[in-house]
Design a protein around this nucleic acid. Structure first.
Lengths: 132, 132
DNA sequence: AGTGTAGTTTATAATGGTTCTAAACAACTG
DNA sequence: CAGTTGTTTAGAACCATTATAAACTACACT
């Protein structure tokens, strides 16, 4: 199976639930953004069996820790995730809470001139809020 | 009084509570970042009387809407606010959840080349996550 | 000053996303 | 196949935030 090795290599047991979630998250043409709520619905639509909400949370966090998902910093009551783990940025439509990918070429290089002693930069994320 | 006009000009009645919160938020040498929880503690420390938590939420949201405070997009279970409403960005120390201001000159101009029809850019915010 | 109105504060309840719990279950090892 | 460890699950707990609705207060107008 497609995702069994990926999971095993990450030290995650390839359980039925995780494989199903992999299908929903990664077996797509395009990457996408989601909240846990939206993912839950997507899973319900795609598979017959039910996956517990706790498992969805566990799995998403496990995948994030392994670098298969990214959290997007947005002010919202819900946490947004992205299946696109490459360096890129986002538009955030304040009206409907939807995110739109911004290619790196749409933003240009960002050069952080200041350094903090003993710290490394893990990521640089640009959020462009949109209004009407 | 210092803040009465500021409030009145914004269409906010200068109540005792709002004036006290103004003192805590704006009568400082340096701007700062805070969560509602931290602000509540700060208020308790500074004044004798008690301000209801609901009022603190109401006031912070009112001030944000008027542009006296900014929300900072960070992934955290709590909402972070900033009394520095000028255009600037943030380091986010993943270890302790603390924010550090990044002057605009530390980042350089950010030029968003892509446009979304019918939408205006309200803000551009850069979050630089730091790890050890 | 006194009165009416609209805006504000308050304690408390409700909401809702997320995490915890601990028991049942499933994947792996030998 | 048995033991161990990791995983799933339903439901409870947690906690930041928002809603409620009653008491209160700033303000405009006499």
């Amino acid at each position: 199976m497609k995702y069994i090795d990926k999971l095993r290599n990450s030290g995650l047991r390839p359980t039925k639930q995780r494989l199903q979630i992999c299908e929903v998250l990664f077996n797509t043409e395009k990457t996408f953004h989601f909240t846990i709520n939206e993912l839950e619905r997507k899973i319900k639509d795609k598979i017959d069996s039910k996956i517990s909400l706790a498992t969805i949370y566990n799995t998403v966090h496990a995948f994030e820790k392994k670098g298969y998902l990214k959290q997007i910093p947005v002010n919202s009551n819900q946490t947004y995730f992205d299946t696109n783990t490459t360096d890129h940025h986002h538009f955030y439509n304040l009206k409907d809470g939807k995110l739109i990918d911004l290619e790196n070429s749409d933003v240009g290089p960002i050069n952080i001139k200041r350094k903090i002693d003993g710290k490394k930069i893990k990521s640089i994320e640009v959020l462009v809020k949109l209004e009407d």
